[in-house]
Design a protein around this nucleic acid. Structure first.
Length: 476
RNA sequence: GCAUGGGUGGCAGAGUAGCUAUGCAGCGGACUGCAAAUCCGCGGACCUGGGUGCAAAUCCCGGCCUGUGCUCCA
């Protein structure tokens, strides 16, 4: 089955046909590092991480670029408040980003270009746009003139320039800037006193918000490239602006073949935002749950849908995540791994999984298959062969582990099991002694004493479960 | 107002024409002194009004509700 993906521009699912056979270039708008990363960043990074993993698994050579917009008004304002250099603000948040993304098992992009390292290219593109008559210089900066390319308006949002003009009313005069038209947007902003700046033909200043992505995608992926991704809140104005800049500069239409946008995170039905106070940083979240549980919960809905984030959701994903992990760990330590291709059940599961992922990366469908294989594995752990167990483990390792990225490394899982085993050995004599005392109490129907002993065991970290075959104990 | 998504069981959330979604929660059962774990089973949904079809949650039209964007935002 061919890969299909939803393209924002055409508002439909399209079959992926790459510009170069067997290769795909993907540029994903990254963060503006003015604060520690929040779970919206995590959702985006994880969504595109899985998209990239799947494209690679499908045999494509993927070149994945994600940028940092490491200079902007908020960064400057925070730097001023703290009386430090703006780059210190950006760098500490970028460091934070890399740390949490690593915890979330996000495979790094192939390159992370930054605005502050792209200034010459940005100046070149602005010059080019001025030369071609699409931009003009004014008292406070350089602006892109939208009226020079009205046909490019609204390609992603569906709005036409006329609609916006009508809605704009008399606001043009209220802009108070050197813009000719209020819809024009800044390519270069002249620095105010105290602001960081780079020299340019138009005066000392810094890039406008949108131009950097046009330049960095050009530098890393070329004049035309396959996929451009980002959060759905970037569709307007950021990605619309990129279309103006790139297409007017490069004279290709389209520059971007497919636009992909991930949905936002909702908390109690509303978009997560600082102003509403329903804001979670990634570190907030992973102080309460494990990073991979968070990852799991963020792919519970397909990437384009808004995803709910609340305690119930977390409990739900936490529950299944631990079922997955314990079945996998048990199977791995018991039987290892082996090829699954000769087992019909697992072949069917693979087919369903792949069909789901090929259909616009539907991780929800993929998770249903994971759940069904976990169920299968648990059944086989009870009454199956080594071959069936190792095959199921192998299957999960590939699809839950390598593709969805929701399993820790095998070494880590085995080390953890070993650690628990060690702990069991240490407690063994004590536990056996207490359990035999409890057995006697139970035989005498002295439930009070039996429960007392169970509580004692609980205090040393041991949970007793009375199975039909006798008591089973495990560590908390 | 304009644009663009969405309205599925207690919750989350697939599914775009005919076949049990799935998970969590709930209920019943096995097991059990109780608890826990595991397993088995059960119930319960397709916003509303029309239309097309042998057949619609699924397609078409209207209505209502709702998210998001139209300013910085993943």
């Amino acid at each position: 089955m061919a890969q299909r993906l939803y393209d924002t521009r055409s508002r439909s699912k399209r079959t992926l046909e790459t510009l170069v056979d067997g290769e795909v270039g993907i540029y994903v708008c990254g963060i503006t590092p003015y604060s520690p990363s929040h779970i919206g960043h995590a959702r985006q990074a994880i969504a595109f991480d899985i998209i990239v993993r799947w494209l690679r698994k499908s045999g494509l050579k993927v070149n994945h670029i994600t940028n940092f917009t490491d200079i902007d008004d908020k960064i400057i304002s925070i730097a001023n408040e703290e009386n430090i250099d703006f780059l210190d603000v950006a760098n500490r948040n970028i460091d934070d980003y890399f740390e949490v993304m690593d915890l979330l098992n996000v495979i790094p992009a192939d390159a992370y270009p930054r605005v502050t390292e792209t200034i010459p290219g940005i100046i070149d593109m602005i010059k080019n746009l001025i030369d071609k008559g699409h931009a003009y210089s004014s008292s406070d900066g350089v602006y892109f003139e939208i009226d020079t390319a009205p046909e490019k308006y609204g390609q992603l949002t569906g709005q036409t320039l006329e609609m916006v003009r009508e809605g704009a009313g008399g606001r043009v005069s209220e802009t108070g800037s050197g813009k000719k038209n209020h819809r024009d947007f800044a390519l270069w902003k002249i620095a105010k006193p105290g602001e960081p700046y780079w020299p340019s033909p138009w005066g000392n200043g810094r890039p406008g918000w949108h131009i950097e992505c046009s330049v960095m995608s050009l530098q890393h992926l070329g004049e035309k490239f396959d996929i451009h991704g980002g959060g759905s809140d970037l569709i307007f104005p950021h990605h619309e602006a990129e279309i103006f800049q790139s297409e007017c500069c490069l004279k290709h239409d389209p520059v971007v073949q497919y636009w992909m946008h991930n949905g936002m995170i909702n908390v109690d039905g509303e978009k997560m935002s600082k102003s509403l106070g329903n804001f979670w940083t990634i570190r907030d979240a992973i102080s309460k749950i494990e990073p991979l549980e968070l990852r799991y919960s963020l792919i519970n809905a397909p990437y384009r849908q808004p995803v709910e984030f609340n305690d119930t959701i977390l409990q739900d994903s936490s529950s299944h995540y631990h079922k997955l992990l314990s079945a996998y760990g048990e199977g791995l330590s018991k039987s290892g791994k082996s090829d699954w291709n000769d087992l019909d059940f697992l072949q069917t599961a693979e087919l369903n999984f792949s069909n789901g992922m090929d259909d616009d990366f539907n991780t929800r469908v993929a998770i249903v298959e994971i759940q069904s294989v976990v169920k299968y594995l648990r059944e086989k752990l009870d009454s199956g062969s080594d071959k069936e167990i190792s095959s199921a483990v192998s299957w999960l390792s590939e699809f839950a582990g390598n593709v969805l990225g929701i399993l820790p490394e095998d070494e880590e899982i085995l080390a953890n099991i070993e650690r628990i085993e060690g702990e069991r050995m240490r407690l063994q004599d004590q536990v056996i002694d207490l359990l035999s005392q409890r057995k006697i109490a139970r035989q005498n129907k002295d439930w009070g004493r039996a429960d007392l002993i169970r509580n004692q065991l609980n205090e040393i970290g041991v949970i007793v479960e009375d199975s039909p075959k006798g008591p089973v104990w495990k560590l908390k």
